[in-house]
Design a protein around this nucleic acid. Structure first.
Lengths: 340, 340
DNA sequence: CTGTTAGCGCATTCAT
DNA sequence: ATGAATGCGCTAACAG
């Protein structure tokens, strides 16, 4: 705990034989517009280096009421690598801009959320990223609306706040492109439901992309095996479909958990991926890489989303309300039958 | 951005007709030891409420050189719900103690790590949690050693810093208990290697627990199918084992990914879990819940680890170097053949 | 019991 | 081109 006494600005100034003012100007890169003598400048810089001078952030904040921190408030309940990846991206971007990230998890509790917002505002964070696990429509807490805010993975129709989201529509098209790059000599179905339960916006957009891309390729969507986006429901619906004599050459699963359930059902019926059925999916989670065969999945670019959000938030060019769509890259596996 | 002008301590004092000092004492709950008149107290409290007074953290920090923030530095590369859960726990605990969490990911890069430490120290965080993804032995960066630090999921032999870790040995025993609570009429093998590759300390401890518990039950460990802790290697080793005529009634997988590979190999050989083979595992990841049948897994209590670490860090009772072992709960599935 | 006074470290306006 | 003076909002000796 015996921290070495930190040297202050005036220590530096004294050592360089100048006033604190001058030192401050120089250390803040304002020497140019202040037209300070190069010699003075060097002396100050040297003194600062010798003393290992580090400005005191609290003092600076008190003066400037800016803290070089950005708050991230998210609803994400534990689990899923969402938080991890998103924070990785945000954290890296923040570092580049000399900021630190402070986090707050609302656990989906509006009251807790309000508290966290309050607390961050008290601490004068320079901006807040409001993130949700599932792409959804939200209503941001009142006090946030007056602040510098960027929504991540969600939109708020009412307030038109800037937001950054995955490009789900293009993602849908990408999934189809992956499928049709292979051999799919039969019907193509989607697995997963569209009902924007939980307010998810992703489903309909992905489906639009899928439909359009299919149509443009002169194919069409044979049907949708509707089920909640999870393993067991997907198993059930695909199992039922096959049991009823259903048959498909290509399956587009709306997320990787659905794909896992689908794999399980296909296996149960002795169907082999990709020889009998080609499968593509969305999420690009670790799971996709674990399956046998490895699953081709259109990934949610969490890290990119986090990074873009921070950049937008800190970008001083006061851009008005704007929605940025981040491309969804493909994590390519071997779950699509190769052409020829 | 039109933030309402925040009221200050002296605003409150003026409104209550007292000096800033008195207001400060009262607002900081020191009215008792200062023996301030109850009437005065009420007036001040009321004034503060009326004005929606919120202390300015920067000013307070400048004065007290304490920031009510704790830094979390971790090596975790994106992915895995480790970060997510750990931060959830840490964040919740921090909230209880009126602190906020600031994060820094070193991505395993020592240089970046040093920068992050530096930056957090500059900002006067009240303490730092140094976390690693894999339970391992580390060497904490020099500047940290003088600080208030708690290691999470790792130990540093050299410095004897306080640490919080999962109780891997008891976890091993728990895994066996789960297995033997069922019917396991044949050999029991472990799947996964012990080599502390990546410096992981978990393997040997789990194995010790497994061995001891087995011995006490009058059984013994038939062998270890050694492989890196991942899906494909596990598939390969179990597949090879079965192909060579190997046979087991119980398998203890050293993590859930190994268990997945094991499931895949068993399925390939027409073996059914749990009828033919009972499987238990470690990690308690989401994956365990997704498998069919659901996997019984001894969970790593990430959230608890995070919470305990924060509590230890902020606990003023200056406890010396100490290592806390957190119990590993069971996420019970149906991968063990039920007795009778 | 309460008020006066004095900084914490820094950025900045205004002189020079 | 540089310095003196001031105050950000708060806490804490030290008076009374």
């Amino acid at each position: 705990m015996a921290t070495v006494r930190k040297s202050t600005l005036s220590d530096v100034a004294r050592r360089a034989g100048v006033s604190a003012t001058t030192a401050s100007y120089i250390l803040n890169g304002r020497s140019a517009q202040m037209r300070i003598a190069p010699a003075t400048q060097d002396r100050v810089l040297k003194a600062a280096a010798d003393l290992r001078y580090r400005p005191n952030p609290s003092a600076r904040s008190l003066r400037t009421s800016t803290t070089r921190t950005v708050g991230v408030i998210s609803d994400l309940v534990a689990g899923g690598s969402f938080a991890s990846q998103m924070l990785t991206g945000a954290s890296a971007a923040a570092r580049m801009l000399a900021h630190l990230i402070v986090i707050g998890e609302s656990q989906g509790d509006p009251q807790l959320e309000a508290l966290l917002v309050e607390e961050m505002l008290d601490r004068h964070v320079d901006g807040i990223i409001y993130a949700t696990l599932a792409t959804s429509e939200v209503s941001v807490p009142r006090p946030l609306r007056q602040q510098r805010v960027v929504l991540l993975n969600c939109v708020d129709r009412a307030t038109q706040l800037p937001a950054v989201l995955p490009d789900e529509y293009e993602g849908g098209r990408t999934a189809v492109a992956e499928l049709l790059a292979g051999e799919v000599p039969g019907e193509i179905h989607v697995v997963g439901e569209m009902s924007s339960e939980g307010g998810s916006l992703a489903g309909p957009l992905r489906l639009d992309g899928i439909r359009d891309a299919l149509r443009e390729a002169g194919r069409d969507l044979a049907g949708v095996l509707s089920c909640p986006w999870d393993v067991a429901p997907a198993f059930d619906v695909v199992d039922g479909f096959l049991r009823d004599g259903g048959r498909a050459a290509g399956l587009v699963c709306l997320n990787d958990r659905v794909a896992l359930g689908t794999f399980q059902a296909l296996a149960e019926h002795g169907l082999v991926v990709p020889d009998d059925v080609s499968v593509v999916s969305f999420d690009g989670s670790e799971l996709a890489g674990w399956l046998r065969p490895r699953l081709t999945s259109v990934a949610i670019p969490y890290a990119d989303l986090g990074a873009r959000a921070v950049e937008m938030l800190l970008d001083t060019k006061e851009q008005g309300p704007s929605v940025v769509r981040v491309p969804m890259p493909v994590a390519r596996g071997t779950s699509v039958l190769r052409a020829r």
